[in-house]
């Protein structure tokens, strides 16, 4: 303890290590579930789908997402924490709005990517996972994709960390690459949990691939690879435009932006 009760002692190390452990466990749980789904499930799921793997996918991803949240949230400073609800509302509103149109995109990760750019990969991942969980209160079908949303937030944070938001033309490229990962990641979830996609437009794309003779998993993966990279490229560009329009004072308030010079011209202070 420091001599004064009004001040904080230097930050505790033990608590930090426990949090790290939770984050790693969460990430490992998600990764292991994914590997199990892809590798250990060679049989085509249309020949009598194993409901065991559905439950496993659901619980593995959900557990991972919850561990991630529990590990990251307590370390997030209050100034970032208050942004997360705002981000979730943006995600949900845009996601619902786009989902109600006949566009084969989602645009449900604008808020997640925004947080990732302002506050880094860990906060981005937690926001993604929370987004899936909170949105599922209105639309339960998005629950299994919480882990995928966490991956998007994490990758967006990495992109920001390594300067891909300093130039406007780099943002959609980063988004495109993130989208490839996101598509490959979420396709097995859609296939094993729902046996398809939840939107009519995306469903039409899947059935087009099925008509050409693809297996269900590969049809869904191809659909995801058509939609996701484009979708994320759009989302990353939108977020880049948003953060460029923010007052410098607002952006410089975030240590992540100051430390890694996330935005061009933002001097470290």
């Amino acid at each position: 303890m420091s001599s004064s009760s009004l001040t904080l002692p230097a930050s505790g190390q033990a608590a930090g290590r426990n949090r790290r452990l939770l984050e790693i466990l969460g990430g490992a749980s998600i990764a292991a579930t994914y590997v199990y789904l892809v590798l250990a499930q060679p049989t085509d799921l249309t020949n009598g789908l194993s409901s065991g793997s559905t439950l496993l996918a659901l619980s593995g991803f959900l557990l991972g997402a919850v561990l991630l949240i529990a590990g990251v949230l307590p370390t997030v400073p209050t100034s970032t924490l208050v942004l997360i609800p705002v981000a979730l509302v943006l995600n949900i509103v845009l996601g619902q709005f786009i989902g109600s149109t006949l566009v084969p995109f989602y645009l449900d990760s604008v808020g997640t990517v925004l947080i990732a750019v302002l506050a880094g990969p860990a906060a981005g991942a937690a926001t993604g996972a929370l987004s899936g969980i909170v949105w599922s209160l209105f639309n339960p079908t998005v629950l299994p994709f919480a882990a995928g949303a966490a991956l998007i937030g994490f990758l967006a944070g990495l992109a920001a960390r390594y300067g891909l938001f300093r130039r406007f033309y780099l943002a959609p490229v980063a988004g495109f690459v993130t989208g490839i990962f996101a598509g490959v990641f979420s396709a097995p979830i859609a296939a094993f949990v729902y046996g398809g996609t939840s939107g009519i437009a995306t469903g039409a794309v899947v059935s087009a691939f099925r008509a050409m003779g693809d297996s269900l998993l590969s049809a869904i993966t191809k659909q995801a690879l058509l939609s996701d990279p484009m979708d994320k490229a759009i989302v990353f560009s939108v977020v880049a435009l948003l953060v460029y329009a923010l007052p410098r004072r607002t952006t410089l308030q975030f240590p992540f932006i100051r430390r890694h010079r996330v935005l061009a011209g933002a001097k470290t202070s």
Binding site: T46, V206, R210, A211, L216
Partner: peptide, 13 residues
């Protein structure tokens, strides 16, 4: 509707 489109019309298995 999406499921019907996908599996109802094209289920070559």
């Amino acid at each position: 509707l999406s499921l019907l489109l996908t599996h109802g019309l094209f289920f070559h298995e």
